[in-house]
């Protein structure tokens, strides 16, 4: 049995069956499991996807949102069991893979046009 197949199979066993296609510029709502003391609850983090790092099991998305006037970026491991669900609420039109230019922008200029279908 070839070596790479073993790694791929072991990785696929840890991967989630259904993950929506997420692209830079999309607006997503990520439901994260948060442990507070001995209680666990779901927290939603909604914002714009700055960057998607593919890599099978190691796939990551960086999401940026403005929370109480402060820009907050969080990077999620898509296949982590702590990430309960990722919903794509809007497809933004982006022409590059990493939208770091959004960091310098506030207000309307920090929004992307809706992707034409």
């Amino acid at each position: 049995m070839p070596m790479n197949d073993v790694l791929k199979t072991l990785a696929s066993e840890q991967q989630k069956a259904e993950v929506p296609e997420i692209r830079p510029g999309d607006t997503v709502a990520v439901s994260v499991r948060v442990v507070e003391g001995n209680r666990e609850r779901l927290q939603k983090f909604e914002g714009t996807v700055l960057r998607v790092r593919n890599g099978g099991l190691d796939e990551q998305v960086t999401v940026r949102r403005i929370a109480s006037g402060v820009g907050v970026e969080r990077t999620f491991l898509v296949h982590s069991p702590r990430v309960e669900k990722i919903e794509v609420t809007r497809h933004g039109h982006a022409r590059r893979a990493a939208l770091y230019f959004l960091r310098e922008r506030v207000g309307k200029s920090a929004t992307l046009k809706e992707k034409r279908r």
Binding site: L7, A11, S80
Partner: peptide, 12 residues
């Protein structure tokens, strides 16, 4: 040695 990958523990 086959190779390396990431492993998610039960606690995430």
């Amino acid at each position: 040695k086959v190779g390396m990958l990431q492993h998610f523990r039960d606690d995430g």
